[in-house]
Amino acid sequence: MRLTVNNQPIEIDADPDMPLLWALRDLAGIKGPKFGCGIAACGACTVLVDGAPVRSCSLPVGAVDGDVTTIEGLPEGNTLHVVQQAWLEMQVPQCGYCQAGQIMSAVALLEEVDEPSDADIDDAMSGNLCRCGTYPKIRAAIKQAAELKTKLGA
């Protein structure tokens, strides 16, 4: 089976029913997307398929019909994505386990909404659980990323 992940073609030998998450993690060695719940209830496994966020723990790899982007694919060369930069600047993560998923959801939100309000952030990010309670910083970092993005004209 052939997938395109972070612009790289990869060949894996997977049962088409295997969730994309496990194909990425156990077969392709791409560990950024995390296993949290297995039922699309926590968001830790969020990746983008053709730019749209999906919970990879619940999407069969055989049903993937686009290019997959994981957190490893966000930076351009040595430059972190603006969302990653904002996450660093605001010192968002604690344990960090949910943050790859949070960042992917935030990237997807900012693709659609240039200047998200608090309500936009609530409506986009409530599927991503954080047990450390970094929510106030996530909120601040998304706004920071939106500013950075506008500044860079990206």
């Binding site: 950024g32 995390k34 957190i71 990653q84 660093l88 993560p93 960090g96 943050q99 790859a100 960042i103």
Partner: peptide, 21 residues
């Protein structure tokens, strides 16, 4: 201080138990 562990955590580095390979 800027935390020493955050670059790894915003780039999806394989640092957790589940990431052992």
């Amino acid at each position: 201080q800027k935390r020493t562990d955050l670059l790894a955590k915003v780039t999806g580095a394989p640092i957790y138990g589940v990431d052992i390979d």
